[in-house]
Amino acid sequence: MPTLRIGLLIGSLRAGSFNRQLADAVRTLAGDRFVFEEIGIGELPLYDQDDDAAFPAAGLRFKQQVEACDALLFVTPEYNRSIPGVLKNAIDIGTRPGGSNSFAGKRAAIIGTSPGAHGTVSAQQHLRNVLSAVDLAVLPQPEIAIQYREGQIDADGNVSDERLLKRLQLFLDRFEAWLAA
């Protein structure tokens, strides 16, 4: 079986993003199980239905990248108990214009980290609702909503926290098995 290509959508644009650190850790831990391709969302224009007739080039590139992947991994922070607007905008662009849903029928997983006591529990629940509406099947378990702590993940994507390391390894094992099923 060829190595699966996983589209990586990171919901934070911040240069020092905790979620980018988490995505790097997952890439490092995954080794050669998957080929990860980051799909950037920062340069997408705000979705405007008036642009459907002449869809923006950045939107078309985004849709092509999503379509080229076997599955997707959403790595999201939590902003005000929900997902970042930039991530929701990317999802909207991926489903437009009408009749051209680039997410339809794909599989996905969600993970995330935030300094709040509950990590990204609320954001992930909202994201699950949105992804269900755009015909993405989402890995049901394990939920990986991490309370960010300084030093858990180093600059090279190595996880120093043993408990977090075990959770991420479990996540990768389940994601791989679910995609193979």
Rank of each mutant, 00 (worst) to 15 (best):
residue 43 E to L: 13
residue 5 R to K: 15
residue 92 D to V: 01
residue 103 F to M: 08
residue 30 A to P: 10
residue 13 L to Y: 09
residue 164 L to V: 08
residue 60 L to T: 13
residue 168 L to P: 01
residue 92 D to M: 02
residue 120 T to E: 02
residue 174 R to M: 11
residue 97 P to C: 03
residue 46 L to Y: 09
residue 166 K to D: 06
residue 150 E to I: 09
residue 104 A to E: 11
residue 139 L to R: 01
residue 44 L to P: 00
residue 67 E to S: 09
residue 166 K to Y: 06
residue 19 N to P: 06
residue 76 T to R: 08
residue 111 I to N: 00
residue 67 E to A: 10
residue 6 I to W: 02
residue 135 D to Y: 14
residue 57 A to Y: 09
residue 162 E to W: 01
residue 109 A to W: 11
residue 132 S to G: 14
residue 176 E to Q: 15
residue 144 I to Y: 03
residue 160 S to T: 15
residue 153 I to R: 08
residue 88 K to Q: 05
residue 137 A to R: 03
residue 58 A to K: 06
residue 2 P to V: 08
residue 114 S to E: 07
residue 35 V to M: 10
residue 180 A to T: 15
residue 144 I to V: 15
residue 75 V to H: 05
residue 121 V to K: 10
residue 155 A to L: 10
residue 91 I to P: 00
residue 58 A to T: 05
residue 26 V to S: 04
residue 142 P to Q: 14
residue 27 R to H: 06
residue 64 Q to C: 07
residue 100 S to F: 00
residue 109 A to L: 03
residue 177 A to S: 14
residue 80 N to M: 02
residue 142 P to D: 10
residue 150 E to T: 08
residue 163 R to G: 12
residue 84 P to C: 04
residue 77 P to Q: 07
residue 137 A to E: 12
residue 55 F to T: 01
residue 44 L to S: 04
residue 161 D to H: 09
residue 120 T to A: 07
residue 112 G to L: 04
residue 77 P to L: 05
residue 115 P to W: 05
residue 36 F to D: 03
residue 93 I to W: 00
residue 119 G to R: 02
residue 103 F to W: 10
residue 169 Q to V: 13
residue 34 F to M: 04
residue 178 W to D: 03
residue 174 R to F: 09
residue 90 A to V: 00
residue 61 R to F: 11
residue 156 D to F: 11
residue 124 Q to E: 12
residue 12 S to P: 11
residue 100 S to R: 00
residue 14 R to V: 09
residue 83 I to P: 03
residue 104 A to G: 08
residue 132 S to E: 07
residue 74 F to K: 05
residue 36 F to P: 01
residue 140 P to A: 06
residue 72 L to K: 04
residue 145 A to G: 08
residue 26 V to L: 09
residue 43 E to V: 06
residue 99 G to Y: 12
residue 157 G to D: 01
residue 64 Q to G: 11
residue 92 D to C: 12
residue 75 V to G: 00
residue 110 I to W: 05
residue 101 N to S: 03
residue 53 A to W: 02
residue 176 E to S: 14
residue 141 Q to C: 07
residue 175 F to L: 15
residue 46 L to V: 10
residue 69 C to S: 15
residue 146 I to F: 02
residue 53 A to M: 09
residue 175 F to M: 07
residue 179 L to K: 08
residue 152 Q to Y: 12
residue 173 D to Y: 07
residue 142 P to L: 10
residue 37 E to K: 15
residue 49 Q to C: 01
residue 42 G to W: 05
residue 121 V to L: 14
residue 110 I to Q: 02
residue 147 Q to R: 15
residue 145 A to E: 02
residue 162 E to L: 09
residue 3 T to I: 13
residue 124 Q to W: 07
residue 155 A to S: 14
residue 166 K to F: 07
residue 143 E to W: 14
residue 47 Y to P: 04
residue 102 S to I: 07
residue 149 R to S: 04
residue 82 S to I: 03
residue 111 I to Q: 01
residue 48 D to C: 03
residue 117 A to G: 08
residue 130 V to S: 07
residue 142 P to T: 12
residue 83 I to Q: 03
residue 97 P to S: 05
residue 69 C to W: 01
residue 136 L to G: 04
residue 143 E to G: 14
residue 22 L to P: 00
residue 44 L to V: 02
residue 80 N to G: 06
residue 101 N to G: 02
residue 131 L to R: 04
residue 122 S to C: 12
residue 43 E to I: 04
residue 149 R to A: 14
residue 146 I to D: 10
residue 181 A to D: 13
residue 94 G to L: 06
residue 87 L to A: 02
